[in-house]
């Protein structure tokens, strides 16, 4: 039963990943594309976790953690760059 649920949800998550990549392609502005990349990252993390359940191993969870961290750092960097034109502000300038 878990195998069946994992297979079905892998299919659903794959379709959802493709749809969010479509928004990355057609998104009219940069925040649209960044939001779509956030959704794609969420789908990738969920896919990794479902794959770990399906293979009955804990080894894949580390990569989910790393992808979550990198996604947050990337979102913050792009948001700061869009808002102010710089990512790291220095007070001495």
């Amino acid at each position: 039963m878990i195998q069946w649920a994992a297979d079905v949800s892998m299919l659903v998550i794959g379709v959802s990943l493709l749809l969010s990549l479509w928004r990355v392609l057609i998104g009219p502005s940069v925040p649209d594309r960044m939001a779509a990349l956030d959704a794609a990252t969420a789908n990738v993390i969920a896919g990794i976790v479902v794959f770990a359940i399906r293979d009955d191993t804990l080894d894949y969870i580390d990569s989910a953690l790393v992808i979550a961290l990198l996604s947050f750092v990337g979102t913050v960097a792009v948001a700061k760059f869009l808002a102010k034109g710089v990512i790291i502000e220095r007070d001495s300038d």
């Binding site: 079905v8 959802s16 990943l17 749809l19 928004r23 779509a36 959704a39 969420a42």
Partner: peptide, 16 residues
């Protein structure tokens, strides 16, 4: 698992 896949699909449909 199925709830998670459902909410991911709903979130992406909202994105579109």
């Amino acid at each position: 698992i199925l709830t998670g896949a459902f909410f991911l699909l709903v979130g992406t449909l909202g994105l579109l």
